[in-house]
Amino acid sequence: MAHGDITHIDIPVSDLAKASEFYSGLFGWTIAEVPGYEGYPMWQAPNKISGGGLAPRSDGFEQPRSYVEVDSIDETVAAAEKAGATVAMAKAPISETSWWAVIVDPDGNHIGLYEGTT
């Protein structure tokens, strides 16, 4: 993936098992938990390219959220803020080689940022 590509889509759900059954049956997605990320099953589309996660629904996370791969979260957040965005979640580690953050665009949309090894 390259800077600017959508790399991941999280879908907020109330019942992980029910959502897994729904999306795998409806779209043919493969859905499974990945070791180290229990309680956050990952989905992959039949094209083996598109994917994301089923995440617990929470306050502030009530709609699907796309994650855009960036070369630098720090630089992207600075540019986003200069352009009128705010930060909903500061940069945080996913692993030793990857990070994520969430910005809110000037129209109120939450956009995830991803930096690291896909």
Rank of each mutant, 00 (worst) to 15 (best):
I31M: 03
E33G: 00
F27H: 08
W29E: 02
Y23G: 00
A19R: 03
S24A: 08
M42K: 08
P46T: 08
K18D: 11
Y37K: 05
G28D: 11
Q44G: 09
T30Q: 14
N47L: 06
T30P: 07
G36S: 04
A45H: 03
L26I: 10
M42E: 08
A45E: 03
T30R: 11
M42L: 12
P41D: 03
S24G: 10
P35M: 07
F27L: 05
F27T: 05
A19G: 03
A45S: 09
A32S: 13
E38L: 01
N47P: 11
G28K: 07
I49T: 14
E33Y: 06
F22D: 04
E33D: 15
Y37Q: 09
P41N: 10
A17Y: 13
Y40C: 01
A19F: 07
A17V: 14
K48Q: 15
T30C: 09
N47T: 15
P41F: 01
W29P: 00
A32L: 13
V34G: 12
E38N: 12
G36H: 14
I49W: 13
P46C: 10
Q44A: 12
F22S: 03
A45N: 01
S24H: 08
A32C: 09
I31V: 02
G28H: 14
I31E: 00
S50T: 06
W43Y: 15
S50Q: 08
V34A: 12
P41K: 01
G36M: 03
G28Y: 13
V34D: 14
S20D: 10
K18P: 01
P35I: 03
W29R: 00
Y23L: 02
G36L: 03
P35E: 06
M42A: 12
E21R: 04
F22W: 15
F27D: 05
